[in-house]
Design a binder for these strands. Structure first.
Length: 596
RNA sequence: GGUCCCAUAGCUCAGCUGGAUAGAGCGACUGCCUUCUAAGCAGUAGGUCGGAAGUUCGAAUCUUCCUGGGAUCACCA
């Protein structure tokens, strides 16, 4: 049984025995003891003082005395004002450790029978992935793994935005200046090639607008009348009409982009169970809108457009169907959510989408709720903040975006340079070394983007992200590699520890106890991360584990420890810590190197 | 203008449903490799938790107002 639960039950009994109070476990607060005080658990008795009709100190002292006398848990206790600091018996902690050490499923929950669909990535097909997409992909991948770890049946889906005016712009530019260029002929990744034409379009378009304005046209009119934009719009109309030549070019260019994306996804270790294409789903949702109209949930204006009035929810009136009967963004989302529900019969649907769409998802949730659809309660928007650069916001038009492929390559190169400098892996084969650089470079990048609370904006400092010391993924990986080294040497020396029974009457060093306390928190951390959709909780936890271990490692001998029981304990601690680190880093999509 | 999000050390971030003297990392300074990987450990310096009220025995945390930053309110997606 987890320690917290054991203590809570004991405290409940104590309260009943001493004060005839029958309190639920939520009624009192059990928190970790601050470092400067002795003990691991602290009961805050201010809240109990009134009900017990005694001072907080008196309550604490009496509870402490009772617990020590009537349970086998307590070694000693200290009362400081309204805080009861409990020092538990080492034997109890050793028993706890023994239990989790031998539990192969520690921290993993049994399947809870619930299905959950996580949508993430969702790129446009007119340009390559950038830093912002990386945050999205890492978050989506990590939260999927975390949800799976706590028992959900998780399906990862991608919704590719493969149609619309943006891809038409790249197509127009390609028609004008492409000269039959292909990814092969130019030796350019497909997504970058298409992105190149998008940039070309934008540049030429701006020139046209400027020229029009110089000729006396107003800036709004110029923006609309520029021939290139007219062309792109014309292409969109022909695309929607199914014009063969337009569709062919569209297919060709999108295929280039997908091949490019695939390379990047593979680099990142990102996968999906299903990919949706907006060209297949953009017309969906109309029927739902019509049904809502028939039911009187929505209303039609004179011009034939259909709206919903969300002012009672504190939102605005929202257009659902254009005058010409075509879908808007929200119509499509109403359709795709319904499609997903029939595809997966999921209990929950999570959308990993930037916080610039907070309003959109509020509207979507409200509408689904109004319609009384069965999946109304299960929708969650995992909203995340923009990624800023030291120079400010990323702007694709100003060329200040950080390209994902370039960044990945840079991280790997830096890892390589740093590894060479340290010279610890001279005996590695070229392939092994290359693998290590990838593990380190990507680990640093993923950790850097995942450690921050998703909701907050994130400042991406290229220098800091490439740094390999301190609060970094590398630090955690290093801890793992260190442990592997210790365990290998133990094995080489013929030290067995895995199945050696742990003596329960050895004195526990505070650093070892701290580690055990940390390790036992693993299930709660996973649960918290899942409940709050927060991979950062896991990132933070991994860091705490690594720090705790490094302290112990620097202070206590392991392989040269004379006391056999202590040595076995430290080896087992090292072993479980490495396994736990590996497992939770894996949830974040971060690999663990055996050596570095 | 309405709505939503954010504000903690010079910088980047933790701080759980209110609890003890607000914590890490980077940067700065000082120690520690003849013993398990120094990508490490230990220590010093650095704070009016944006501001003001309120609730409370107790507020970085909850409420209100204000300031600053960001997003959004398209017959764009």
């Amino acid at each position: 049984m987890p320690m917290n639960l054991m203590l809570q039950e004991a405290i409940q009994q104590a309260l009943k025995a001493l004060f005839k109070l029958d309190l639920s476990q939520e009624a009192f607060l059990l928190q970790p003891t601050r470092k400067e005080f002795e003990g691991t658990h602290t009961l805050v008795t201010f809240t109990l003082a009134k009900a017990c009709q005694q001072s907080p100190e008196a309550v604490a002292t009496q509870l402490g005395t009772w617990l020590q006398k009537n349970t086998t848990l307590i070694e000693s206790f200290h009362t400081v004002k309204g805080f009861l600091n409990l020092q538990l018996k080492d034997a109890i902690w050793l028993q706890q450790f023994h239990d989790i050490y031998h539990d192969p499923h520690f921290g993993c929950c049994k399947p809870n029978g619930q299905k959950i669909v996580v949508e993430y990535s969702s790129p446009n097909t007119n340009k390559p992935l950038h830093l912002g997409h990386l945050r999205n992909n890492f978050l989506g991948h990590a939260i999927s793994n975390i949800l799976q770890a706590v028992g959900y049946d998780v399906y990862k889906v991608n919704l590719v935005n493969d149609r619309g005016i943006h891809i038409c712009k790249s197509m127009v530019a390609y028609q004008h200046w492409g000269n039959g260029e292909t990814p092969q002929s130019s030796d350019l990744k497909g997504d970058h090639l298409v992105g190149k034409y998008y940039v070309l379009f934008d540049k030429a378009y701006k020139e046209q607008v400027t020229a029009l304005i110089a000729g006396g046209t107003s800036s709004e009119e110029a923006a609309q009348q520029a021939p290139l934009l007219q062309e792109a719009q014309g292409l969109l109309v022909r695309w929607e009409a199914g014009d063969k030549s337009v569709r062919d070019l569209w297919h060709t260019m999108n295929a280039w982009v997908y091949a490019g994306f695939e390379v990047t996804y593979q680099q990142l270790g990102i996968t999906f169970d299903k990919t949706y294409y907006e060209s297949d789903t953009y017309h969906l949702g109309k029927q739902i809108v019509q049904e809502g109209l028939a039911e009187g949930v929505f209303y039609a204006k004179q011009d034939g457009s259909i709206w919903v009035d969300l002012t009672p929810e504190g939102l605005d009136n929202k257009l659902l169907l254009r005058t010409n009967g075509t879908s808007v963004y929200i119509t499509q989302d109403l359709g795709t959510v319904a499609l997903r529900h029939t595809d997966f019969q999921a209990d929950k649907m999570v959308y990993v989408v930037g916080n610039e769409q907070d309003y959109h998802f509020k509207v979507l949730a409200s509408i689904i709720h109004r319609l009384g659809l069965p999946y109304a309660a299960g929708i969650h928007h995992l909203s995340y903040g923009m990624v800023d650069l030291p120079s400010g916001k990323m702007k694709s038009r100003e060329g200040t975006v950080v390209d994902a492929d370039e960044l990945i390559a840079e991280m790997i190169q830096t890892a390589e340079a740093h590894t060479h400098m340290l010279g610890k892996i001279e005996d590695f084969s070229a392939a092994e070394a290359q693998q290590l650089y990838r593990t380190l470079g990507l680990g640093a990048l993923k950790y850097f983007l995942l450690r921050v609370d998703a909701q907050k904006r994130l400042l991406f400092d290229p220098q800091a992200s490439i740094d390999f010391k301190g609060d970094t993924g590398t630090f955690i990986q290093y801890t793992y590699a260190r442990i592997q080294s210790v365990l290998h040497k133990a094995q080489a020396q013929g030290l067995s520890y895995r199945d050696v029974p742990l003596s329960h009457d050895i004195a526990l060093h505070p650093l070892a106890r701290d580690l055990i306390v940390l390790l036992t928190a693993c299930p709660e951390k996973l649960q918290e991360a899942a409940n709050t959709y927060a991979p950062s909780v896991i990132a933070q936890y991994a860091l705490d584990l690594a720090k705790g271990y490094n302290k112990l490692y620097a202070t206590l001998p392991i392989l040269t420890e004379a006391n056999h029981a202590q040595q076995v304990l430290r080896l087992q601690l090292s072993d479980l810590l490495a396994r736990t680190l590996q497992r939770i880093l894996h949830l974040l999509g971060i690999d663990t190197p055996h050596r570095m």
